[in-house]
Design a protein around this nucleic acid. Sequence first.
DNA 1: CTGTATCCGAACCGATACTG
DNA 2: CAGTATCGGTTCGGATACAG
Lengths: 112, 112
Amino acid sequence: MNIEKKPCDNAYLAIHDTLYVIGGKWKLVILGALVTTGSKSFGELSKMIDISPRILSKELRELELNKLITRKVLDTKPIMTEYSVTPYAESLRELINIMISWGYQHREEIKD
Amino acid sequence: MNIEKKPCDNAYLAIHDTLYVIGGKWKLVILGALVTTGSKSFGELSKMIDISPRILSKELRELELNKLITRKVLDTKPIMTEYSVTPYAESLRELINIMISWGYQHREEIKD
DNA sequence: CTGTATCCGAACCGATACTG
DNA sequence: CAGTATCGGTTCGGATACAG
């Protein structure tokens, strides 16, 4: 997907691309949680953002594929994992912060 | 929705709120088109971003409800419309610009 | 031209049970 | 604890025809 586009790509196509990577109901929420509160285990994330394991698993896999997070298996018993944002994901920090403040602000705006 | 949330809202909930307003496959693409290239008619938007009329209509209605765009009916024959971003939507311009540049940049990043 | 109505397949996603 | 398998419901969205 998003391949075979004309070279004369323009702005809204770039937005399309971005949405393809971090769009959907959960990816930015997950990244936001990791960015603002640091690395988390699978279970911590699951509770924190109230998402079912099936979906969380899928989303984390996709984020990892896009090099936005890393998965580390801890040598515990039973096994535990640790998900962290990559340095590359730092490039999204500004985007995430804007989303957060816009969310707060919009809730006020809509009160009418 | 997104009402009845606890007052101790936190970052990922704010992101959730933002995504509720401008999330989905099309809203930011539409806003991006309007922000970067100015007001457009229904048909222009439809061609520009390659979206079916049914979806476009629905998305525009929702954006209007959230006070992000305005719809103006022109006194032509046959009738035409003009969709524009509101001043309020300017608060999203920064977000949109980041999305655009991130989209371009990510395409490079992923080339491996 | 600007939408709406209908149809219908695809994607999404939540719950739950279960394996290692 | 971490994650997968299965199931089923809901939403999404594309195509098309059509009405004002």
